[in-house]
Amino acid sequence: MALTKEQIAARIARELREGYYVNLGIGIPTLVANYIPPGMQVVLQSENGLLGMGPFPFEGEEDPDLINAGKQTITTVPGSVFFDSAMSFGMIRAGKVDLTVLGAMEVSDSGDIANWKIPGKMVKGMGGAMDLVASARNIVVAMMHTNPKGESKLLPACTLPLTGVRCVRKVVSDLAVLDITGDGFVLRERAPGVSVEEIREKTAGRLVIPGDVPEIQV
């Protein structure tokens, strides 16, 4: 069985460590916040100018001045701090953020990522994604392994305009957990009941299978 979006988020949450500063992108990455292990202190960075992002506000307590990078109403937590956009990207550029999780349309086996533009179709813009992938030390991508037509999104080279080059370190898809090394996608874990053969078939980029591949604990 392929993982659900929630299960992808839960698996990514196992990459968190005590004291991490973390930037979560829009979509599946946002869900990672729901799976921070109890008792672990992780500080969420929102690139519009907040460290210490809390949960959504209770109904009636929404504050229009307090939003996240997805423009959703949010709250603060004890120890939160606000800053301007230059400082926000300053801390990102300076490598202060320990883990960045974002979505992707395509990832290549050398760690290139495309997630901001489909020529002629979608022209929304890159937002902060190019800054994040250019500077973050530890980038995990949350994505579906294939597109709705069943075609692989893990490619030898991206076909869409790039967001960044040689930057993605790990991919958690609905089918597998893969590290990106100099050798390509290294298959570390597979979704429960999903065979190595199926993953091989659905991965167009170079795939390395290092012996035994355990199932993802869900």
Binding site: P55, F56, P57, F58, E59, G60, E61, E62, P64, D65, I67, G70, K71, Q72, T73, I74
Partner: peptide, 12 residues
Amino acid sequence: QKRIEQRTVRKK
């Protein structure tokens, strides 16, 4: 007006 673009809330 301070419009809210994405009103997201949780239940009490």
